[in-house]
Nucleic acid binder design. Structure first.
Length: 405
RNA sequence: GCGUCGGUGGCGGAGUGGUCAAUCGCAUCUGACUGUAAAUCAGACGCCCUAGCGGCUACGCAGGUUCGAAUCCUGCCCGGCGCACCA
């Protein structure tokens, strides 16, 4: 049996921090960047009681890169911590081996203990830009799910009906489309629900796509006579193109993107998203958000981009990113810090593009045909077999490269 | 188990013996436009090179039939649906 240690566990003995019951803060907690609170009055009651609540958030340690969408519940979690509540961070070490059916029919890759640990370290490194993990209790659900007996599983399963499970949108859709639904997928809500029972929490936080699972946990808590939790869901934010931010759409702003990437991506979001981003992703006050909303969209985005880059990097980095962006895109200057190759390393311009951009020869040829290659003087280079000439080049919209003597 | 339908490029989905590297939609990329975008318009969208109406590899996997197959046949693997089984 594997030993799952509890890292950073401060549950017992830690000096009880004062819990804030400030109405304004509670109101903001329950409304800003929130999709749903179920049930709302329970949340209100618990939060104003002055009691230190147990609140938890679970993740699948899949080793994914975190993006701004992931930051939304994390930021919410931090707000709870700031109010003085006890935050439990649950690593879905066991569930990761089953695979969350929320993501289509993703192949369930079973993860080893080492992978789970490594993935969580990876997660933590990225998430630490938002949340202070030293103040959180960290648990692995492997601890209680692995030893569950079949009879216990049957007992849990008897708390739900097939009809209830089928209510879930995703299942209905898949039924209609004739897509397979594995039986084990019905067990997933059971497992994450059981987490709530074991952890005996007052609140669970998660993305709105997890609402079904979280409510299953609420149900199980009631059935087992444990304390009743409330569920708080956070919105799934849209990516730079307006669709749900998701790796598969390639529209993500990653928490570890370097400042200029992050700035550029934020500048390219749709205008309509500015307000949401400001509200959900930044700590700016509502007055300020309002005044930014009144600005010219470009100015507003610059302000937003600067704000977010400053949060994940630094104020200086944000300023630098803004200057670089303006000079590169508004003024069309080719930056200096770009990939380069020596002139003798390539025999013609096409090879230069292949090397510096990392694409196939055919794709590079296309760039020449389409007039995507431009030198510093703004002249288009159209002959892929032309000999390499020392200088800086713009390759398409936002790629650059230079040939060194 | 039986029957039946199906597995095609990042996704959806055409094609049912020969100009098929494969219609089309989405996504992506490029050009024009712009406030960085978006929208719009135009184009591209397997890989290789000596760049040609050239070569190579592709339509679940393995064989086969044919001058020639993504398209026909056989076997296998994987899925949907229906039926049967249900102590």
């Amino acid at each position: 049996m594997v030993q799952w240690q509890c890292m950073g566990f401060l549950g017992f003995g830690a000096p009880a921090q004062a819990v804030s019951t400030d109405d304004t803060r509670i109101h903001e907690l329950l409304t800003r960047g929130v999709t749903n609170v179920i049930p709302r009055d329970l949340a209100q009651k618990k939060l104003s009681s002055g009691e230190r609540l147990r609140i938890y958030f679970g993740i699948d340690p899949t080793g994914a890169k975190l993006h701004l969408g992931h930051s939304v519940p994390l930021r919410k979690l931090r707000q709870f911590a700031d109010l003085g509540h006890h935050v439990i961070f649950l690593v879905g070490s066991f569930t990761a081996m089953i695979g969350d059916p929320t993501g289509r029919d993703a192949a369930r890759t079973s993860l080893s203990e080492e992978q789970v640990r490594a993935n969580f370290q990876d997660y933590k490194r990225q998430a630490e830009r938002v949340l202070d993990f030293s103040k959180a209790e960290i648990r692995y659900n492997n601890e209680w799910l692995a030893p569950l007996s079949f009879s216990k599983i049957v007992e849990l399963a008897s708390s739900f009906t097939v009809q209830q499970m089928l209510q879930r949108d995703m299942f209905q859709r898949r039924m209609e489309e004739g897509k397979p639904i594995s039986l084990h997928e019905f067990l997933y809500p059971l497992m994450v629900g059981y987490d709530s029972v074991v952890l005996d929490v007052d609140c669970e936080l998660g993305g709105s796509d997890q609402e079904f699972n979280m409510l299953a946990g609420r149900h199980l808590q009631q059935v087992s006579g444990k304390r009743e939790k409330f569920v708080l869901t956070t919105p799934l934010i849209e990516g730079t193109d307006g669709r749900k931010m998701s790796k598969s759409y390639d529209n993500c702003v990653y928490l570890e993107d370097d400042p200029s990437d992050m700035y550029g991506k934020l500048m390219s979001i749709k205008d309509e998203l500015i307000g949401t981003y400001l509200e959900v992703l930044t700590d700016l006050g509502s007055d300020e958000i309002e005044s930014i909303g009144a600005m010219h969209p470009k100015e507003a985005k610059m302000r937003l981009a600067r704000e977010i880059v400053a949060m994940y990097h630094s104020k200086e980095a944000a300023t630098a990113a803004e200057e670089a962006f303006t000079s590169t895109f508004s003024e069309g200057t080719i930056p200096d810090d770009i990939p380069s190759v020596g002139r003798s390393e390539v025999k013609n311009m096409r090879e230069f593009i292949v090397k510096v951009v990392g694409i196939s020869g055919t794709a590079a040829t296309r760039y020449f045909e389409q007039g995507a290659i431009e030198n510093e003087a703004g002249e288009k280079i159209t002959d892929p077999t032309a000999p390499p000439i020392v200088g800086k080049y713009r390759i398409g919209k936002r790629q650059f490269g230079k040939i060194l003597p």
